[in-house]
Design a protein around this nucleic acid. Sequence first.
DNA 1: TCCCTAACTGTAAGCGGTTACATTATGAGG
DNA 2: CCTCATAATGTAACCGCTTACAGTTAGGGA
Lengths: 339, 339
Amino acid sequence: MPPTIYDIADHADVSTATVSRVLNDESKVAPDTRDRVMKAAQSLGYQPHASAQNLARNRTDTIAVVVPLLANYFYMGVLRGIQNALAPKSYDLLVHAPSHPDAVEEQVRRAAQRGRSDGVLLLSAPLHEDIANSLDESSQPVVLVDTRHPDYESIYVDNHRGGYKATCHLLEAGYQRIGHITSGTPEPDPAAERRRGYEEALDEVGHPRASSLVARGSQEPFAFAKDGGYTAMKRLLQRDPPPDAVFAASDMQAIGALQAASELGVRVPEEVALLGFDDIDVSAHVGLSTLRQPLRDYGELAVEKLTARIQEPDRPVSSTVFDPELVVRDTCGTQTGET
Amino acid sequence: MPPTIYDIADHADVSTATVSRVLNDESKVAPDTRDRVMKAAQSLGYQPHASAQNLARNRTDTIAVVVPLLANYFYMGVLRGIQNALAPKSYDLLVHAPSHPDAVEEQVRRAAQRGRSDGVLLLSAPLHEDIANSLDESSQPVVLVDTRHPDYESIYVDNHRGGYKATCHLLEAGYQRIGHITSGTPEPDPAAERRRGYEEALDEVGHPRASSLVARGSQEPFAFAKDGGYTAMKRLLQRDPPPDAVFAASDMQAIGALQAASELGVRVPEEVALLGFDDIDVSAHVGLSTLRQPLRDYGELAVEKLTARIQEPDRPVSSTVFDPELVVRDTCGTQTGET
DNA sequence: TCCCTAACTGTAAGCGGTTACATTATGAGG
DNA sequence: CCTCATAATGTAACCGCTTACAGTTAGGGA
């Protein structure tokens, strides 16, 4: 049996209250008592029992995050931000990643269970009523990232503006037939908003919005995945006439598109320009032009908001919207300087 | 105040013991009692308190993992495997990522604290005596991934063989001046082993082992990072004569090397062939040839071993060594079929 | 009719800490 | 010398749940 504070109390000939005081606060304990306790703890190799502390303190110093997908560049970026912000605050991170998309709800419930963590971060969580309700009941502090909901702190990017910016950039570069690769069906909100931004930009300059210029990815393994971009691009390039530029709803899809083009012997950006969305880590490696989302900042900001709310549960709900920033690299054919 | 089992007990007019029995086991409870309890729980919106359960059960249904670096392709792969294996077992995952390399020890200690998790997975942890000791004391089940230690279950790859295989492949392809990019100093064990494999292969065929053919990366931001590969490759390519092939100790370094070559206008693989190590996710995207480590399998196997040990703490310690598999893509100039 | 067993259910002691409150000792001020 | 604030420590309740053990009840068998 590992030693408890009772053992320490015995050895140091004090009460458990005193032991606890020595181990935790600075509060009034006589120096030599403190010494005796510390020595006893040391010699017994004492380690506090986390569960017991959590229960007694009604606090876990842990925050939970629900990630739809581990091993995804997008979430990896956010997670890194979270981790960075968490470490100095000495919170631990409980990661809930559903093994299957349908399991999201269960994971949210689990993450929000009382006594498990002090607050919950939800990444890209589609907030069905069900989920919203069980969140409400658990009355845990919650911060949403890459989604929004009027009742919760939210952090997200202006997707519409991103789509618009992307398309404008391509238009300004003189491209005439600008295609778009969107997500699989059902189209998640962010994808729909990006598409609308794209459409609006075209409308504004009076470009035709041929449906033959829009292709849809698949839902597997997830809505913004590479495979979808790959097949969508193949379809687009085989149309007659093919687009001379393509705006993809995500970088992963753009990377799939890149591969499709390469297989068809279509050069990028000479024969077809390509623009992604997200600026995930690998985009820099492959020279993909894109609209940047500050993923790390999402994570850091989310932690700030969450910890603030943990300390002050009634603070007003605030949302933060980021403006996606155009990052010009090799694939959009408008590069002026260096990589 | 959220409802507790006492509230349920009151409402259903039974004792807390019965409530607990209804909520947990199948053990003997009269059907209508069960009903009353369930109804009460339902109507009160009862949720068990995780910390309290953990304390009473002396079990957390959580496993902890210490990752040197979040947001790294290598660990992302392993994490995904871990997650996959964990979900069906309904364990939760506590992720400890040190914000700074020096904080590893602290994170290990934290992860191993009693009452926090039921077992610990250590990824690439350098096992100083200190750490080994505090692990010992905590007497938690432990599994090591990408490291080995006789006292613990370990999962790792045969790095020496990988280095050897890589170099042999390049030799067989007819390259004459085979360079090597190793990690920053101090060289982690895996890097040293890969380098020795490289050296042994050269020795065997009587090739000279010019130190001018070996370059070292930097330690920042971590030993196998892209930046190190980038600078090392620049140095190698500026030597006279430059190598005609390079074996990099990691894929990230190889990707940095790729970038260096591109900036110097040196074509890969025509002017210099390149081989990486790990087969991280992005390698496929950039067509990097490499030696594959089955990262997902590491994670899954690690979980299997750990959970087995949790259930049966005295089972014999077993190690699993994987054989790295050569994956030929574009960068080593020996491609025969398609990508 | 009486005893015994099986089926339920309740009592209360933990699990390992934290902490409000009570108690004791100490020394300063009058 | 007495009073009282103050510092140091102890007592014991409590956090919310689990579970060993004891108690109750009802039905079956002799």
